[in-house]
């Protein structure tokens, strides 16, 4: 696999590279838009005091979740972090259940016990939802261990942020995955900031994939500018993991357009950097490709947007109108009672 895509293609306005059929581009645009509008509604509800706790938005990184859904086989698993709404929406979780989870309602994805940071939706292949940095890496490695043990041909996709690169569990999970040649793809979503600390002040190298050989992992590294390219390269990584039973490290250069969480105004980033990153926004670029390459009208795209907004407003309404958990719910699921 290549390891040479440090710099982006020259022109963010070039829609020939990595924009495909109208059908695909439109579908992916819609999925990315669903995530963005969901996140915007969540932010609005947070500002209105309807959602508490911590709220970490996926705005800017949507293409990654949509591309992951594209390459997933039914027996595969996705393990993610506390910035996980995008995966839930992309993988097929009900936006209403996701929103209700953040509202602390009984109809939430995990019945209101988890909140924004602990999304789990096993039926849709989302295996977390982990909010202690790096501690999901060994767990995801264990899922891959089980796949190999049982011979189920499954690949585990373990997502982590660049902020999880310094902590110990990441190293131990990668060590065991490499040692035991497990079918797992570790995807570092490098959005360049570990909360407010830029990468250059949190890890000693700028190219994360230089670590890969130390764990006997293949690697790939590129800037996320479209669903198509991201899906193509994640699929290649998954193929290697599945067919050769070995871990692969993929570093995705991406950007969150909002702060780390709702309480972070992100004053540590300068305007030029944000503007440059926004020019590569896969959602914006797909919008432009739909207009300029596929000949869609602004009105048609606006109509689509209205549909998506209506879907997410319905999710908010569902959350607002859902009941809170029964008092007795706090005693549920502490131990499995039946053997």
């Amino acid at each position: 696999m290549t390891n040479d895509k440090d710099s982006p293609p020259a022109d963010p306005g070039n829609y020939d590279a990595y924009f495909t059929s109208k059908e695909n581009d439109l579908r992916w645009y819609r999925e990315m838009l669903r995530i963005r509008r969901f996140e915007e509604m969540a932010a609005r509800s947070y500002t209105r005091g309807k959602i508490s706790g911590f709220l970490h938005l996926y705005i800017g990184q949507e293409a990654i979740a949509v591309a992951t859904k594209e390459v997933l086989e039914p027996q595969d698993r996705v393990v993610s972090t506390y910035r996980t709404h995008g995966f839930a929406i992309a993988l097929g979780s009900s936006p209403g259940a996701c929103m209700a989870e953040m509202y602390g309602k009984a109809t939430g994805l995990v019945a209101g016990v988890g909140g924004s940071m602990h999304f789990f939706d096993r039926d849709n292949q989302l295996w977390g939802g982990y909010a202690i940095i790096g501690n999901h890496v060994p767990v995801a490695t264990g899922h891959a261990f089980a796949s190999k043990y049982l011979g189920d041909d499954g690949v585990t996709f373990c997502f982590l942020g660049d902020g999880a690169l310094a902590i110990g569990p990441t190293h131990e999970g990668w060590t065991l995955a490499g040692l035991w040649k497990l079918p797992i793809v570790f995807v570092v979503e490098n959005n360049r900031y570990s909360m407010g600390t830029p990468l250059e002040r949190s890890i000693p190298v700028s190219d994360v994939t230089v670590k890969a050989p130390g764990y006997n992992m293949a690697s790939d590294r590129f800037r996320v500018t479209s669903v198509a390219e991201t899906a193509e390269r994640l699929a290649a990584a998954a193929k290697l993991a599945r067919e050769e039973s070995r871990p692969v490290l993929v570093e995705l250069i991406t950007y969150r357009f909002r702060g780390h969480s709702m309480s972070d105004p992100a004053k540590y980033r300068n305007r030029d950097e944000v503007a440059e990153s926004r020019s590569w926004d896969p959602l914006e670029r797909t919008y432009n490709a739909l207009m300029h390459k596929h000949g869609m009208t602004e009105e048609a795209l606006e109509e689509l947007d209205d549909e998506v907004v209506a879907e997410m407003e319905a999710a908010v309404e569902f959350a607002e109108n859902s009941p809170v958990p029964e008092p007795s719910a706090r005693f549920k699921n502490i131990l499995v009672e039946e053997s």
């Binding site: 890496v137 060994p138 767990v139 490695t141 261990f145 089980a146 796949s147 131990e172 060590t175 065991l176």
Partner: peptide, 13 residues
């Protein structure tokens, strides 16, 4: 940390 976590992940699976 690594093999305790692997055990947990394997048990979940």
């Amino acid at each position: 940390t690594g093999f305790a976590g692997v055990g947990i992940g394997a048990a979940m699976a």
